[in-house]
Amino acid sequence: MINVSVLFFGATAEAVGERQMEIDLQQPTNAREAFTEIVETFPQLKSHSLLYAVNQEYAGGDEAINDGDELAIFTAVSGG
């Protein structure tokens, strides 16, 4: 098992009711599997169009997830 932190912002933080949490994942895993598992845990996220990041970089899905990584789930950005 590996331990990662998961960050939420804006609409996803409100939907989940948390801004940050630690979760355990089975190894080996990639970004697609990890984020699928997290979204299944919080199905209220499914009504949003989501973006994903691993270690502060946008994730395409195939990135390997390692112990201590920082994952983030958020909606399409709206700055400016």
Partner: peptide, 27 residues
């Protein structure tokens, strides 16, 4: 691309604005 979000507060409610999600890197 820059992860910043705005929340609009109206007289009759509030909402996190969600942008256009189309990104090359979206899973």
């Amino acid at each position: 691309t820059v992860p910043i979000w705005k929340k609009e507060f109206y007289a009759d409610g509030e909402v996190w604005v969600e942008g256009d999600a189309s990104r090359d890197s979206q899973i």
